[in-house]
Design a protein around this nucleic acid. Structure first.
Length: 209
DNA sequence: CAATAGATCATCT
DNA sequence: GATGATCTATTGC
């Protein structure tokens, strides 16, 4: 957050500023190979009012040819959304406890997607701290796939929802801040663990460990 | 600080 | 019945 330029006790929610300075990420951005979409989403802003966070870490999942992807087993009730149109949210429940957010990529019928792994909190921090009682620093609010869904209030009710119409949306700055991008193998998987499909901002403290 | 165990359930074999 | 795109608390150095 910014240093105390104002002495007012009521903190201004910067969500309106973010909305004014950004533009909605459109369908053409999502309807591309998952790797390209992953790169394109780095630095964009994930918004679910009253919260917003800048995407600083993502992973690409390549569909049926990718052993680590849910779609490796083909079309099932769970993976149905992945086979649907791009630009939609795929939210699933894992480890009996956590929800994870993916963005569906590639044309309809091709189940590539991008896992959102970490956010730099930008707006609604007070709400995030309420939801994430264990967090003592901003960097602990959303530095992991389960943490960020918790902090943002993203649940399975948003599975299959459109990122174009909302309420969950992704927006980009016309002139994004420059940060050097690192590439590494994906985290937390057993098969396909050697493929370099994780992208993150090298020096950003909000990236997961 | 690093390592580890426990929580807890949808999905698939 | 086992596994898993995780997080947290706790233990041990």
């Amino acid at each position: 957050m910014e240093a105390g330029s104002f002495a007012t006790a009521t903190p201004q929610n910067p969500l309106n500023e973010i909305l004014a300075e950004t533009e909605l990420v459109g369908l053409n951005t999502y309807r591309r190979p998952a790797i390209e979409v992953a790169r394109a989403l780095l630095g964009t802003v994930l918004i679910l009012p009253p919260c917003a966070g800048r995407i600083v870490e993502v992973e690409a999942y390549l569909g049926e040819k990718d052993e680590a992807a849910h779609a490796f087993r083909g079309l099932t009730p769970r993976t149905k959304v992945l086979y649907g149109p791009p630009g939609h949210a795929y939210v699933y429940f894992i480890y009996g406890m956590h929800d994870c957010l993916n963005v569906v990529a590639e044309p309809t019928g091709s189940p590539g997607c991008v896992l959102i792994r970490a956010l730099e909190p930008l707006a609604g921090l007070d709400v995030m701290y309420t939801r994430r009682a264990a967090a003592r620093r901003d960097r602990q609010l959303a530095s992991g796939p389960g943490k960020l869904t918790r902090a943002m209030g993203i649940g399975r009710e948003l599975n299959g929802s459109s990122l174009i119409s909302g309420p969950l949306t992704i927006r980009r700055y016309p002139n994004p801040k420059l940060e050097s991008i690192m590439i590494s193998p994906r985290i937390g998987i057993t098969r396909g663990a050697d493929w370099p499909l994780r992208f993150y901002f090298e020096a950003n403290p909000h990236v997961s460990g």
